[in-house]
Design a protein around this nucleic acid. Structure first.
Length: 202
DNA sequence: CTTCCGATATACT
DNA sequence: GTATATCGGAAGG
């Protein structure tokens, strides 16, 4: 299994990577009718624009990826594999496509609510993987494009506890076939809620 | 822990 | 028609 390399400061070479690094340890707060759930982010991936072969924005703007071209701090939520929602945070200036996929987190509040939204299983798996995380938070395409910095939003992104550089590992992104050489996945080293690395199906 | 594989909507060739 | 930024269940170590 791929174990990753220590986080390097050179990672800051691109704005979207700075945002990805800054999101490590942040809190995602969702308030819905079924209750509040707070997740601490433990794993993210950066996606850029035309020069990133694995990005949804690689071939330009479409109806699906339009939110990626919107203002930073807003949500880009997409539907995939016919059944899963995945949450991204738009990362760069308006009209500049870039987003950070939130791949995993630890549920630190509202564990009961999160459990009720998921199939029975271990608590550490509640938000382990992008689709599971979206499900635990009760997120769907309804909030695509929503401002995550608004105090009264259904989903909000806030400060949590930022890990030190030596607590972070970097490695290849999961489930992609293009641009696999870019180490644009970040995770908290050794955290049990981080998803396991899976190469794309051949 | 691992591998294998089916389910299923949307975007793209 | 084919691929996909995935998950969950089954089976094997």
């Amino acid at each position: 299994m791929f174990v990753g390399a220590p986080f390097r400061r050179e990672f800051y070479a691109r704005p979207v990577l700075v945002v990805a690094r800054s999101m490590m340890g942040c809190h995602l707060v969702s308030d819905t009718e079924s209750g509040r759930v707070v997740v601490r982010v433990t794993e993210v991936e950066a996606y850029a624009g035309a020069d990133d072969g694995a990005s949804h924005a690689h071939r330009g703007q479409t109806a699906r990826n339009a939110a990626m071209f919107g203002p930073p701090g807003h949500a880009y939520v997409y539907f995939t594999y016919g059944m899963h929602w995945c949450l991204n945070v738009v990362a760069e200036a308006d009209q500049v496509p870039a987003a950070v996929l939130v791949r995993a987190g630890e549920v630190i509040e509202g564990v009961e609510t999160a459990r009720s939204r998921r199939i029975p299983g271990k608590d550490r798996d509640l938000a382990r993987g992008p689709a599971r995380l979206a499900q635990a938070l009760g997120i769907t395409g309804d909030i695509n494009g929503a401002d995550l910095t608004k105090a009264d939003g259904v989903l909000r992104l806030g400060a949590g506890s930022t890990p030190a550089d030596d607590q972070i590992s970097e490695g290849p992104r999961v489930g992609i076939r293009s641009a696999t050489e870019l180490p644009w996945r970040l995770w908290i080293t050794g955290d049990p809620t981080v998803s396991t690395f899976r190469p794309a199906a051949t």
